[in-house]
Design a protein around this nucleic acid. Structure first.
Lengths: 219, 219
DNA sequence: TTGCCTGATATTGCATACAAGCAGCCTGCC
DNA sequence: GGCAGGCTGCTTGTATGCAATATCAGGCAA
């Protein structure tokens, strides 16, 4: 996405900090002290500042002049917005994929889906989860639209921390696979509207699963 | 979007450079020399570097380590992708707006639309164009989804330089207004799929107008 | 003439130094 | 006892200096 052959310190710091945020090491609301980060990574403040400014644009941190940077903490409404946005973008990708995928891409998508059906039948949540990521990525790529695909990928990264342990829910595996089936059929047949609706349904259900999960946690 | 009460030099530089790119002063492919920009704005290289790194994320410029920054020049395919993405995002906003707009927002949208109908009848392209921007912005806001709305706004800014003089085309004004009518009706009636389709149709036609225009220019 | 190597130049990347603004506290006054 | 004002320390914002690398011109050899 943003990788360069010979990443600079600022870029490496940006990915390091982003990783820290995404895997939960850097908690939302945490103050990102420039000097502290610099010492912690053994560099000067300059690349740290550049990394922070870069991360600001992706929404991972919030900077206010003269008041420093903090890990942007999402209110429940903002998390909800992220999930809604995610669903819409996934659906859009599916729509575009139905219109734009090449025959080769369509065949590969089908093969991928069939392999996942087998995994779902075997009941292997871990393998299925990995394959699932690749499945959705294939659809992003199949949209043949760099801005949309990149934004969707970025959203997926951002919502990642909030959607752990989806496939542990009983029966979610086969249900997910059935929904995938609808998506794949629509895409393969070039049914743009159908792909949009099917993906929306699919991701919407995932979101509901999250909400149920969150509700349990809160309660 | 990103404005602060007391903008730093880096932020002011970022907006200044972005303006320069968007209004055509800074041509695509132009090398953005840090020292030059610093002298030109009467500051040191440090805030310039931060501004450039910030702009990198929005896609306006491309930075490669040790090779400096250039105004990102879009190939025709990339411009096409931007327009497609724009259309999809507009349609998504319309879809969400149909589902999420409050009664007040719906009434205001209708009023806005009626005012634009009058402008179209009067044949005032300039006033119509301004109102058009506000009309679409109202729909973004009506989506009630910050990530989607902000991304769509950013896209509109980016495609701006490529879509000048849309409403000069004969008959475009009334046609645009008719399409708006379909969009507004769908949104007001809560018809999500209809709003999506109507907006897609609307923005798709605008894109075609651009392509015709570009074709003429090239030919 | 063409290709490659080599050195000079210029530009970027990073570190350090300096200036400016905010936070919290302490003191003095009401 | 409470509050206003100022002061101190810390953090951010900006400038400058140094090191490393890409670019390009020129020369040399094939």
């Amino acid at each position: 996405m943003m990788h360069s052959d010979n990443p600079t310190l600022a870029e490496k710091l940006a990915t390091a900090i982003a990783d820290g945020i995404l895997n939960g090491t850097l908690r939302p609301g945490l103050r990102l002290d420039e000097t502290g980060l610099a010492q912690q990574h053994g560099v000067s403040r300059t690349p740290v500042r550049e990394a922070l400014r870069q991360l600001t644009m992706s929404g991972l941190i919030d900077m206010r002049p003269r008041k420093g940077a903090i890990v942007s903490k999402a209110t429940p409404e903002q998390v909800e917005s992220l999930f809604v946005a995610m669903a819409e973008m996934e659906a859009t990708c599916a729509r575009l994929a139905a219109m734009s995928m090449t025959p080769v891409e369509r065949r590969r998508l089908q093969a991928r889906h069939e392999a996942m059906t087998a995994l779902a039948g075997a009941g292997d949540p871990d393998a299925y989860s990995n394959a699932n990521v690749a499945f959705h990525s294939a659809i992003y790529a199949g949209a043949h639209n760099a801005p949309i695909a990149e934004y969707t990928l970025g959203l997926r990264r951002r919502v990642g921390p909030f959607r752990r342990a989806q496939f542990q829910v009983e029966g979610r595996l086969t249900k997910s696979n059935q929904e995938h089936d609808a998506v794949v059929r629509a895409i393969l047949s070039g049914d743009a509207a159908g792909a949009h609706a099917a993906m929306l349904h699919h991701v919407g259900l995932v979101e509901d699963a999250f909400e149920a999960f969150a509700g349990i946690k809160v309660a």
